[in-house]
Nucleic acid binder design. Structure first.
Length: 727
RNA sequence: GGGCGAUUAGCUCAGUUGGUUAGAGCGUCUCGUUUACACCGAGAAGGCCAAAGGUUCGAAUCCUUUAUCGCCCACCA
C-alpha cells in the first residue's frame, strides 16, 4: 500500500457512523436547492406525499411509505427529470378534534367549556406541534421533499380551493342538502360517512314477538326499543303465509306508544330469515329507510342525537340500551315474547370514537354519485365537454379507458367493486375543526358562494366538511388550483400516487371523483398501493397492543439507510410488511459493508485516477476484471428494470448480492493480488473506482445518506443526489 | 352474504411474461483473524413450493376442486 492509502485508512473511520453523518447530509441536500424542481431541468415528474394527519407522531408505516416514494423520486431525479415531490399534512378534523377532546378530558375539561374560537385555538396549537414533529421525522428518514411548496389541508390556499370546489359542485347539482337517514355518532355528536364506520362482531339477543295480542304477524329484532318507531311490516311478495295480510293496516299500543302498522310486500325481505316478516323502522335503519322510500311510508323519529328515546310513556328519555330492557320486560309481562336467541351480529361503530352508530334522519349535505351532470371541461379521451355523466360513471371511465393505470390489477378489481356499491357521500360534519361549509342562510333563503353574501342577517352553516373533501383536492390544491398557476400547468396531472391500500377508497377514489369532475383532468396517471407494516407476530401496530415502534429510535440506533432498505428489502409492494428489528440490524451491517468497500477502494487508488473512471474496459483484463465488469453491467440493467417495474425489493436484493458477494468478496479479494502486479495495477484501480462509482449511484435511492457521504470522497462536481443514473 | 388475496428452508419473505441443480435476510453448525470491514471471511445443514387432479416437451408459476388462514365491503331484520 502507498503512503497515501494509509492516510485514507486513518482518515475514514473503520465503521460507518450514521449518527455523525445523516443530519449534515440532509442539510447539504436542502441547501443545494435540488429538492426544488425550479432548480432542475428536464421532463416533469410529480408526486404528492399523502399528507399525514396532524394527530401526533409518525409510526413505522409512514417510514415505509416515505421510503418507497423517496426511492422512486430519487431514481427519477437521477434520470434527469424535473422532479417535484410535494410535502404536506392533513388537518384530519374528526381524528384531530377527538384527540384534543381526549387531552382536555385529562385536564378535567370538556369541549363545551370552551367557545368555538377558544377550542379551535387549542386544536390549532396541537396541530402545529404535531406538524413540527412530523416534519422532523420525515427529514430524519431522508425524504427528498420540496419543503418550499409545503402545504396543509387547512391553510388559506387550501381553504380557498375547498370553497371554490364546493361552489362549483353545488352549481353543477352534484352537492345537495337533504333530509335523509345518516350515520350518527352519538359520542362524537356528528354524522360520519360510510367509510368511517367499522363493523364489529358482537353477541346480541334476537327477540321474536308481536306488537300486540291481536296483531297477525310475528317479527324479530335485536333492537326491540326501536319498534315504537315502526310504521310497517314488510313481507316477501311471494310469501304465501302472509299474502292475505298485505295492504291491511293495524293499530296497536306498543309499550305504551300508539303505533300504526301497514303490511307491505317488498322484494328485499328474505322469506327464510326469522319469521320472514320485517318490522320497518324508517327513521332508525338504513335498509328500512330505503324500503320506506319505495312505499311512501312516513318517518317516525323515536331516538335523538344522544341515543335517548323521545317517545312518551315508559320509555321516555331512556337510553336505547336501557329502553331495550324495558321493552323486553314489557313484552314478557304482556305475554307477547315468543322467542329469545343468542346471535352474533355486526354492529356499526365509529372508527374514531368507538360509539355504536345510531341511524337518524337529519338534514345534511351530500354528494350525489348517481346523478348525470353536464361535464364542464374535459381533457380526457372519450368524454367531451357538456356530456352528461354521473360521478360513478366518470370514476369508472377514467380507469377503464386506461387514463389512470393501477399497477396492481387486483386493486383495480377492488376499485370497481367499490364503485358499484357506492352510495351518496355525506360530507357535512357537526364538529368545529374543519372547513366551514360555504353556505349562508337568511330566513328561507340559501346562498352558496366562495365568499360570504353581502347584506345583513346572513348566518353561515355551522357544519364543517368531511376530511376527505379537502384531501380529495390534494393534487390540485397543492399546485395552486383553482388558479391556473405555472405549477398546475407543469405538474398536473401528477405522475404517480403511492398510498397504502387502506386509503384506496377514502382517498384515491375521492381524488379521482373530485379532481376529474372539477378540472376535467385525472389527478394522477398511475396508482401504486403498498401494504401496511405489521409487527413480527403479524399484528397491526396499535396503541392498545403497545407494540408501537418509534422510527426515530430505530434511526438513532441503526441509521436511516438501514431502516429504509430493511423495510423494502423482502416484500413486494402491495403486500404487508413484517417489521423485525433483526432485519434492520442486518442492513446496518450492509451499510457498514458499503462503507468499508469504499474505504478499501479509496485507500488503494490514486486520486489522479478519480476522473478517468469512466474509461471502461481497458486492454489486458484479468478473468476477475472481466467477471466483475460483466456482473456490474448485469446489476445496472436489473436494478433499472426492477425500479421501473416497481419491484423495489428485487432491485435492493440484486444490489445487495452484487455489492457484497461480487464486488467485495470476489473482486476486492482478487484485487489484493492484482494491485501488487505492476502490469495489472492501473486497470485494477480503475475498475475498483468505476465499480464504486456505479454502485454508489445505484444504491443511492435506497440508502441515500451513506452513499452521498462516500460520494464526497470521489471528488465529483455534482452531488450524488443529482448525478446521472448509470446506463 | 359479496369481493380480493395468501399457503415456498427453524423464523420473515422473494421468485418478472411457465424453461436447466427453487433464492435471500435472520437463526443454526464447522473452520478461519499480521490482511477494508468480526457490523468480517470460507464452508455446511435445512424445502415431495398446503393437498388432489388437469393443461404442457416442461408447472412453485396456468386451470379445476379441496383444506386452512387473512384482508376489504355489507345493518339477515
Amino acid at each position: 500500500m502507498t503512503e497515501n492509502s494509509n492516510e485514507k485508512l486513518d482518515e475514514m473511520a473503520s465503521s460507518y457512523d450514521s449518527r455523525a453523518t445523516e443530519d449534515a447530509i440532509y442539510k447539504l441536500w436542502e441547501d443545494s436547492g435540488f429538492f426544488n424542481p425550479d432548480n432542475l431541468t428536464g421532463e416533469p415528474f410529480s408526486m404528492m406525499l399523502p399528507p399525514p394527519n396532524v394527530t401526533g407522531t409518525l409510526h413505522i408505516g409512514h417510514a415505509y411509505e416515505e421510503t418507497l416514494q423517496d426511492i422512486v423520486i430519487r431514481f427519477q431525479r437521477m434520470q434527469g427529470k424535473k422532479v417535484l415531490w410535494l410535502p404536506g399534512t392533513d388537518h384530519a378534523p374528526i381524528a384531530t378534534e377527538s384527540k384534543v377532546v381526549k387531552l382536555l378530558e385529562k385536564e378535567g375539561k370538556r369541549k363545551t367549556d370552551f367557545t368555538r374560537e377558544d377550542f379551535l385555538a387549542r386544536v390549532n396549537k396541537f396541530a402545529q406541534e404535531s406538524h413540527d414533529t412530523i416534519v422532523n421525522q420525515v427529514k430524519k428518514l431522508g425524504a427528498s421533499l420540496d419543503w418550499s411548496r409545503e402545504a396543509y389541508t387547512f391553510d388559506e390556499k387550501r381553504n380557498f380551493a375547498v370553497r371554490t370546489a364546493f361552489k362549483t359542485m353545488y352549481d353543477l347539482g352534484l352537492i345537495y342538502r337533504g333530509d335523509r337517514v345518516i350515520n350518527w355518532d352519538p359520542k362524537g355528536q356528528t354524522t360520519i360517512s360510510d367509510d368511517e364506520i367499522v363493523h364489529e362482531e358482537r353477541k346480541a339477543k334476537m327477540y321474536t314477538f308481536k306488537y300486540s295480542a291481536d296483531f297477525p304477524i310475528s317479527i324479530s329484532s335485536t333492537r326491540p326499543e326501536t319498534k315504537v318507531g315502526d310504521v310497517a311490516v314488510a313481507v316477501h311478495p311471494a310469501d304465501d303465509r302472509y299474502k292475505q295480510f298485505v295492504g291491511k293496516e293495524y293499530d296497536a299500543i306498543f309499550c305504551e306508544v300508539p303505533i300504526h302498522i301497514k303490511i307491505i310486500a317488498d322484494e328485499s325481505v328474505e322469506k327464510d330469515f326469522g319469521t320472514g316478516a320485517l318490522g320497518v323502522t324508517p327513521a332508525h335503519s338504513m335498509i328500512d329507510y330505503e324500503i320506506a322510500q319505495r312505499h311512501n311510508l312516513p318517518l317516525k323519529t323515536v331516538i335523538n342525537e344522544f341515543a335517548k328515546m323521545t317517545v312518551e310513556g315508559l320509555l321516555k328519555d331512556k337510553k336505547t340500551t336501557d329502553a331495550r330492557e324495558i321493552v323486553v320486560e314489557w313484552l314478557r309481562s304482556q305475554n307477547l315474547l315468543e322467542k329469545e336467541e343468542e346471535v352474533v351480529q355486526n354492529v356499526s361503530t365509529s372508527e374514531r370514537t368507538g360509539a355504536v352508530i345510531e341511524p337518524l334522519p337529519k338534514l345534511q349535505w351530500f354528494i350525489d354519485v348517481n346523478k348525470d351532470f353536464a361535464f364542464p371541461h374535459s381533457e380526457l379521451a372519450g368524454i367531451k365537454q357538456g356530456d352528461a355523466i354521473s360521478l360513478k360513471k366518470l370514476m369508472r371511465q377514467v380507469v377503464e379507458s386506461g387514463a389512470i393505470k393501477f399497477s396492481q390489477e387486483n386493486y383495480q378489481k377492488v376499485y370497481f367493486n367499490w364503485i358499484n356499491n357506492l352510495r351518496d357521500w355525506c360530507i357535512s360534519r357537526q364538529i368545529w375543526f374543519g372547513h366551514r361549509i360555504p353556505v349562508w342562510y337568511k330566513d328561507s333563503e340559501i346562498y352558496c358562494g366562495i365568499e360570504a353574501p353581502t347584506g345583513e342577517g346572513w348566518t353561515q352553516d355551522s357544519d364543517t366538511l368531511d376530511t376527505w373533501y379537502s384531501s380529495g383536492l390534494w393534487t390540485t390544491s397543492t399546485l395552486g388550483w383553482p388558479e391556473q398557476t405555472k405549477d398546475f400547468k407543469t405538474y398536473h396531472p401528477t405522475s404517480l400516487v403511492m398510498p397504502g391500500y387502506e386509503i384506496l377508497f377514502p382517498w384515491v377514489a375521492r381524488m379521482i371523483l373530485m379532481t376529474t369532475s372539477l378540472t376535467g383532468q385525472i389527478p394522477f396517471k398511475e396508482v401504486l398501493l403498498h401494504g401496511i407494516v405489521r409487527d413480527n407476530k403479524g399484528r397491526k401496530f396499535s396503541k392498545s397492543l403497545g407494540n408501537g415502534v418509534d422510527p426515530l429510535e430505530i434511526i438513532e440506533q441503526y441509521g436511516a439507510d438501514a431502516l429504509r432498505i430493511a423495510l423494502i428489502f423482502s416484500t413486494a409492494p402491495g403486500n404487508d410488511v413484517i417489521f423485525d428489528e433483526q432485519k434492520v440490524k442486518g442492513m446496518k451491517h450492509f451499510a457498514n459493508k458499503i462503507w468499508n468497500i469504499a474505504r478499501f477502494v479509496l485507500a488503494n487508488t490514486d486520486t489522479a485516477l478519480m476522473n478517468t473512471t469512466s474509461s471502461r474496459k481497458p486492454e489486458g483484463l484479468t478473468e476477475a476484471d472481466k467477471e466483475v465488469l460483466a456482473k456490474l453491467d448485469e446489476v445496472v440493467i436489473a436494478t433499472t428494470a426492477h425500479i421501473e417495474a416497481s419491484r423495489f425489493h428485487e432491485a435492493a436484493q440484486a444490489l445487495y448480492q452484487f455489492a457484497w458477494y461480487e464486488f467485495a468478496d470476489k473482486y476486492i479479494e482478487a484485487s489484493k493480488e492484482q494491485l501488487l502486479d505492476a502490469n495489472q495495477k492501473e486497470n485494477t484501480q480503475k475498475i475498483l473506482l468505476y465499480n464504486l462509482d456505479v454502485t454508489l449511484r445505484l444504491l443511492h435511492p435506497f440508502m441515500p445518506f451513506v452513499t452521498e457521504e462516500l460520494w464526497k470522497n470521489l471528488k465529483k462536481e455534482k452531488l450524488l443526489l443529482i448525478s446521472e443514473w448509470p446506463k
